[in-house]
């Protein structure tokens, strides 16, 4: 058996030092070892986006990453997302207000994808939002209200 590797990274603002098997996936490390069950696994092979997290500010699929790839990086999961006043992030707020979810299983991954979009493009058009979330499957079909929620944020930024 190959010995464990020590990895260090920042997770939701906290320093983490943890040992992991070389073949340990990030989704398992987060859910099973670190108790963060926000990121969800649904396909295990990069097709659905449910396990999306932010790595150094960019959205990544935690089912396709190995734990060792986190070494030295900043990780944010849905649990580490918050808004300017320490409450919910505006994306989260609008998801609630506009009903941009049903079962909620895709929601953590969907929101992380949207955060990545807004980081690079604070005023996305509806079509740009559509394209940005096209790798996140929502089987309940909440797409329209998700677009509504993100478009509302985009409009608010434009009005500022």
């Amino acid at each position: 058996m190959i010995s464990n590797l020590l990895i260090s990274f920042e997770l939701n603002g906290k320093e983490i030092h943890i040992e992991a098997q070389p073949d340990r996936r990030v989704i398992d490390l987060l859910r099973e070892d670190l108790g963060l069950t926000g990121p969800k696994e649904s396909c295990g092979r990069g097709d659905c986006g449910s396990c999306s997290i932010l790595v150094d500010g960019f959205v990544r699929l935690s089912c396709l990453m190995l734990a060792v790839q986190l070494n030295g990086r900043k990780i944010v999961t849905i649990e580490g997302l918050y808004g300017p006043k320490g409450l919910l992030h505006p994306v989260q707020d609008l998801f609630v207000e506009l009903g941009a979810l049903q079962c909620g299983f895709c929601t953590p991954g969907m929101i992380m994808t949207i955060i990545d979009l807004l980081n690079s493009n604070p005023r996305p058009s509806r079509d740009e939002i559509r394209e940005a979330i096209s790798g996140n499957i929502c089987r309940c079909g909440a797409y329209q209200k998700i677009l509504d929620a993100v478009e509302t944020i985009s409009e608010r930024v434009s009005q500022r």
């Binding site: 859910r31 926000g38 609630v96």
Partner: peptide, 23 residues
């Protein structure tokens, strides 16, 4: 009239528990 779903608050923050979240 629309009452925002109380479960949505838990679901957007990653704190809603699904059966898969039991260990």
């Amino acid at each position: 009239s629309t009452l925002c779903r109380p479960d949505a608050l838990l679901k957007v923050s990653g704190t809603a528990k699904f059966a898969v979240d039991y260990y």
